[in-house]
Design a binder for these strands. Structure first.
Lengths: 364, 364
DNA sequence: AAGCGCAATGATAGCGCTAACATCAACAGG
DNA sequence: CCTGTTGATGTTAGCGCTATCATTGCGCTT
């Protein structure tokens, strides 16, 4: 029956704004009136164009432009229970590795019309708990969180939310749902293995005081302990300095100084991040210690600058952008298939030791 | 009542779960039933507790915990036309300066229950246009965007949205609404002034190829041109190299190499960012050029690492975190007063030249 | 007793959209 | 002719909240 429902005398684009609760913005029904179709048809023309005839689709498109319509996805989300938002919880974005993840995830999701709701957990559990709650109140279609160690309250909330959850940047045997990351313990062990292979024996560590750095340090120490057991006479030893978080170049520099004070005969310093490593190098350079001859330095992260410093930094490469892309792709696939049951699936993307000029050559 | 073990999802939970469109989550009305009050009272107890008697407030709080209620702010936003979200549009977060802004803004807003909807514009106008549209469809309460140069379509949409808009990280005489930033042209001029004051005459520039770097380069060149006019015999000259974006240490290094090839007698290189500067320094060190004696280097941004490198980087300090905090505070104040008219207000937060060790001392 | 102000609470009616079903025209086969 | 099928469109009834106004109870004045 077409247009009998709308009162004809209304003045064109202005519409019936007599209701005090209306926002005054152009609505779907305004576009529908302009195109001479029902609101539902406009909704379909925009969201499932294949269900609408070409003629109508064009009429609607013209009406959208004419009225300057911007869809209200808040209302859409309420009606359809799909918000097309993905919550991303990371400790900080002021750290290149997490920034890479957020960047690539945002880019990938944007292509499919999804958007990122950013939450910063600041390396603290209680902050994570609060952020999880506020973020879930927006009813995101999925949640991505860095790390696998959550308070039980957080775990409960995440399970109750019944949305896909991806833990990233870590490994665990017992993921909440999907897990995309790498083993920090294995990184530490591999670094130890590599440096032992280079012939170093007296090690320092300058690590940030966060859970994942602790895991890497543990992995490192475990491998070293094994070597000490095998070759007790070799004089292998380790001293560790914990730097404040967030890790900074200045923290690396003072950490390096502190470490060298405690262990003057240190041959190689393993750092919790490339940034800390740069700080250690700066400290060494200010003491005119030759690198890597007087002191070897190993970073973590292979951040953009690592390859281009002088001397070029030996480090561990993590593909942060890859994690972001994989995570986004995985989520998009699940949205498509509407598969909302937890998977308990683990994807280890691994890491790579990149030997450059701040460590001496490996005796292969 | 204990907790519900996860193996058995919602079964009864007193309510009309027979409706196929209900999400199955705990609703306000479920809490109301548990507390023995009306839904509206629960809403008030949570959002305007001062309007509710202490006795009722406590009953509601207990019911919230008992039921595990997580508010649905999508519905809340639709009903109240207040989403408590702020859209933040920056070119990238994989750049420490913008990451700082995003970080501090997110932190400050989170305290008041506001959340950040992140949009990445990738330095490209058409991408900005698309991002603005999708972001506005979420009906954020305000929008923050880096830069002042927008396409006319973008400007129109932003004006039509009738929400506070803050442009940051730049200066303009004609802001859309609020503007918090600094003059890139003035930065360039001040750097030129400073380096001339140090006695340098043959300048190189390694700049990223983005609009704001262009403005700084222009400011620099303008000041140099004035000096050339004043002292035509002095042999003052400038060569500029444009590096690809996003700026990287590697880009700085190759840019430095390219510049030195074109201008072997260059005395001082001004860089578009600290990252580029680090690259130039790395290139100089690989050529055993002493810094600052054989070559002076000036950065931009005073990123965390600038003070701690060896030699410590002379640079221009921008208070990114300050911009983020100021912006957030400003918005929170406007939300409080519900002042939604554009202000056309400009706040210049300035900058500071930080002379460290990569430039020689200023002849004061 | 009636009236008034005030604080606390409840009932109602949407916000702008979409899921689900209803309708309708056009056409095929029996 | 009827019936069934298909594709395009329309109608209805919410999604889960909150703005708004109505109602209630209580202490106080007149």
């Amino acid at each position: 029956m077409g247009d009998s429902s709308d009162s004809r005398p209304e003045k064109s684009a202005g519409g019936s704004r007599d209701n005090p609760r209306a926002t005054g913005a152009v609505r779907l029904s305004d576009v529908a009136a302009a195109a001479g179709v029902a609101a539902m048809t406009v909704s379909r023309a925009l969201n499932q164009p294949e269900l609408v005839s070409e003629r109508t689709r064009e009429r609607v498109q013209r009406a959208v432009i004419e009225t300057g319509y911007v869809p209200n996805r808040v209302a859409g989300a309420l009606a359809s229970s799909r918000s097309r938002m993905v919550a991303v919880l990371v400790p900080t974005v002021a750290h290149s590795l997490f920034a890479d993840v957020v960047q690539s995830m945002t880019d990938t999701l944007a292509c499919e019309g999804y958007q990122v709701l950013l939450g910063l957990t600041g390396y603290q559990r209680e902050q994570e708990e609060a952020v999880v709650e506020t973020v879930l109140s927006r009813r995101p279609d999925a949640l991505v969180v860095a790390g696998t160690r959550h308070s039980s309250a957080t775990r409960q909330r995440l399970e109750a939310a019944r949305i896909p959850v991806v833990e990233i940047w870590d490994m665990s045997d017992d993921p909440l749902d999907m897990l995309i990351g790498f083993s920090h313990h294995a990184v530490g062990a591999a670094v130890a293995e590599h440096l032992l292979g280079c012939g170093y024996q007296r090690f320092g560590q300058v690590m940030a005081d966060d859970p994942r750095s602790h895991q890497r340090a543990e992995g490192f120490n475990a491998r070293i302990k094994a070597e000490q057991a095998t070759r007790p006479q070799a004089g292998i030893k380790v001293t560790t300095h914990w730097a404040d978080i967030p890790a900074s170049l200045a923290g690396g520099r003072s950490g390096g100084a502190a470490l060298l004070a405690r262990m003057p005969d240190c041959e190689a310093i393993v750092c919790g991040s490339d940034t800390l490593a740069m700080g250690v190098i700066a400290e060494a350079q200010s003491r005119a210690m030759a690198i890597p001859d007087a002191l070897a330095v190993m970073g973590f992260g292979d951040m953009g600058f690592a390859a281009a410093t002088w001397p070029a930094l030996s480090t561990v490469r993590i593909d942060g952008a890859g994690i972001g892309r994989l995570t986004a792709d995985h989520l998009l696939k699940r949205f498509e298939t509407r598969h909302h049951e937890p998977l308990h699936d683990v994807l280890d993307i691994g890491f790579e030791i990149v030997a450059r000029q701040t460590t001496r050559a490996h005796r292969s």
